[in-house]
């Protein structure tokens, strides 16, 4: 499935949910956020949020500095 992740086109094997995408990308941790088509997905919904061909994904990392 083709997705646009942080502005880059990516072809993923998994065609499923946010959880499966993160697993395939090997991204873990509670200090990241995922936005699907510019809407941040609540963590508790990762399992139930399906991805579709061409979806725009932003993976954001917590930034702590000040």
């Amino acid at each position: 499935m083709q997705l646009v992740i942080n502005g880059q086109e990516k072809d993923l094997q998994s065609s499923g949910t946010v959880t499966q995408m993160l697993k395939e990308l090997d991204i873990t941790g509670s200090h990241i956020a995922v936005a699907l088509n510019f809407q941040v997905v609540p963590r508790s919904s990762y399992d139930q949020t399906p991805l579709n061909e061409g979806d725009k994904i932003e993976i954001v990392h917590a930034v702590g500095g000040g």
Partner: peptide, 15 residues
């Protein structure tokens, strides 16, 4: 709601 927990120590470098 954005980031449920802080990152574990040492994972994210500070400024």
């Amino acid at each position: 709601c954005l980031y449920p927990e802080p990152p574990p120590p040492g994972l994210v470098p500070n400024c």
